[in-house]
Design a protein around this nucleic acid. Structure first.
Lengths: 220, 220, 220, 220
DNA sequence: GATGAATGAGTTTTCATTCAT
DNA sequence: AATGAATGAAAACTCATTCAT
């Protein structure tokens, strides 16, 4: 094994295996064979299969959180809502393997339980979504809905579509999805009579935003 | 073991185990311990672990399909859309464990492979959803979207909410969710200028409805 | 494997292996080979290697405790002291393998930690020794020594001899040892001028005997 | 790692590990963790685990042999016997860890097999004990007992006491033990009617001392 | 129907040891 | 001297499944 890259090869191979057969369905031997690493090396770098999954998870969640935080919060309300939908879909397309890995139900629960740094990363990402939505609501730019329902309305359809896409069961192209699901989210949240072009110059002060405790997480 | 209920206890225990650790992550020994049945009993009633999962799956899918088909297809377009959302949420709340079980990625593929009658049950349920949406589209009652996108817009938010609810991370009550997510779905799909009260008397002929190939399945 | 005797065969084989190579030095594979049982059977009956050792230990300690309690506490003081020495040596000779097993330092510590029933068994055995010695002391039949020193004086030499015997390094025969070590113990504890033939009819009331806490154990 | 003390740290850590879990039960990784040294360092200084044990053993045996040889063989028989008991207890108290290490059954056999110079060291030490006892016996100063029984009578109780002490189960203080176990040994070996003060001026010629084959070794 | 001992292949994990840096 | 990645054989352990009772 070429020195210094073993750890990465193991993670790469493990991700591929986990996607094909699930974590529980993958054996260390398969990871070993696929990565070219030896048994000893795998246990040199990781505590075991679950630890590999956790490492992948940390990597994926960090990347996802960055993407979430990178969603622009400025522009018209419609642009902001659409950007959220586009952000999710783009990240999932660019990180297809990781996205499917994180969707595997068995993945996130152990992370929340064991890796508190990861919990913080996710909290922060969700907070940035919450901040945007609460601000739009406060400014009367979208309908006054419970924050988690607004989030479900914006991101739920995207996730539904992405799941179908991952399974090869999607009829619409990603471009159509971004356009139509973004449009649908805006249509669902906009206030019919309101001005349409009040652009947001800067997200207002987060005054009164209280961090509610959220114990478990999902990407969407 | 009290006579005649062993089989049920095994299914119950298996469902709980599968939810906690996934099918592959659950061992027969765990089902044995949780159900109080003996190894021999389990193999008396079932062919093995996968067979138990299949039995659970068949039970769940049948119940789900009934719920889907029971959604009234008559009334105003808005009422129909809202009924779809309410139907999903109600079924999931009444069958919480089964709902989460069927959402596990590893569940449905083996069913599709082994139990062709289950595939028919699922196809028929999905077809009934598709039929309704295509009909609404054809009549100009909702926006003309790809069928899978329309489905994602209606059911995606509900699923998102249900996930949060199952994790204890939902702020809104089920009643709020049904009302607001139903409303959002309708707002997203309705055609702004159209008459609002054209009620559907009967779902039109399935004319032109072509059964597209769907390789994998998801409830939502 | 003939039904119903597997567990015993495993214990038997394990004892032989442990004596030859120590617990840590014995592999499950060796126990499997020697017992004729399969890996699965070993894990069916025991939790692992340490659990087998614990089971052996429990067996051995119970047998030892019975032997200790069976030592007659009546007769002349000299006879009582000699009986203690003889009791230890006889038990060790009759249970040679178990005796050597229990002498392996690694054995007793985990037992004390994990099996409280065993701790009770040993406490009781030691208590019966303590009772006898305290009674002799109280009656002025032996020198007034700390109870643990009296015990060391009586049983220490026997244990020393038995260790040498187990290693094939003993020059004296067991008969000589019982006679001479019994005699030595009596010579060491008797009070020179005292009557020699005050026979004990019955061990006196255990008045004032307070059970001191003893946390760790050794056979002798 | 501070220069020049790595080797010592490794030995120290290894001794602690060996005492806790035995040699076979200790892994190089544990010694590494406990010593703070790296795998490479350990193999730089030692050939492997057994080599570390051997080094410890050599160190301990040399110290023990010196203590044994330092026991004064002159004075009254009683003083000589008492000095043997005191010598053993004092050495064990000053070298508590090493004492317990050398008592572990698995320790001495490999040494005897691999390090012939160590065998000589041990033989010589035992020989010096044997010489004293044979001389006392020959002069009629103590009872005529098999040499190994005399040794057991003198050192067995001390060892019994030391074991209890190491386990925290000893009631008597070391001072009491030295006094009372020394006294007991003398009481057990003295010849009742004999003169009490025949002091030994010099250990007699080793006339007739035949070196018996001793296959295995024990400190006591 | 029910029981739980028995099976043995497969999987996970440990560990002494080597070696390039 | 020191480091820690890499190795791979050996050991520990799991588990679905069979079967005599």
């Amino acid at each position: 094994m070429t020195r210094g890259q073993t750890r990465g090869l193991i993670l790469e191979a493990a991700l591929a295996c986990f996607l094909e057969k699930g974590i529980a369905g993958t054996s260390i031997a398969e990871i070993r064979a696929r990565s070219g690493a030896t048994t000893g090396s795998i246990y040199h770098f990781f505590g075991g299969k679950e630890d590999i999954a956790l490492a992948l998870c940390a990597e994926g969640l960090t990347s996802w959180a960055e993407a979430v935080r990178a969603v622009p919060a400025e522009g018209t309300p419609e642009a902001v809502i659409r950007a959220m939908v586009v952000g999710v879909i783009d990240w999932a397309l660019e990180n297809a393997a990781m996205h499917r890995f994180l969707l595997q139900g068995e993945v996130l629960a152990p992370v929340a339980a064991r890796r508190s740094e990861m919990v913080d990363v996710m909290m922060e990402a969700r907070l940035s979504q919450e901040r945007i939505l609460r601000d739009l609501t406060a400014r009367g730019a979208i309908r006054p809905l419970a924050w988690d329902l607004a989030r479900a309305i914006i991101l739920g359809p995207a996730e539904s579509y992405l799941k179908a896409l991952a399974q090869g069961a999607a009829a619409a192209t990603p471009e159509e999805a971004k356009r139509d699901l973004g449009g649908a989210a805006w249509a669902a949240l906009r206030i019919p009579g309101a001005d349409r072009d009040k652009s947001i110059s800067k997200v207002g002060a987060n005054a009164g935003l209280k961090r509610r405790r959220v114990q478990k997480f999902d990407l969407l």
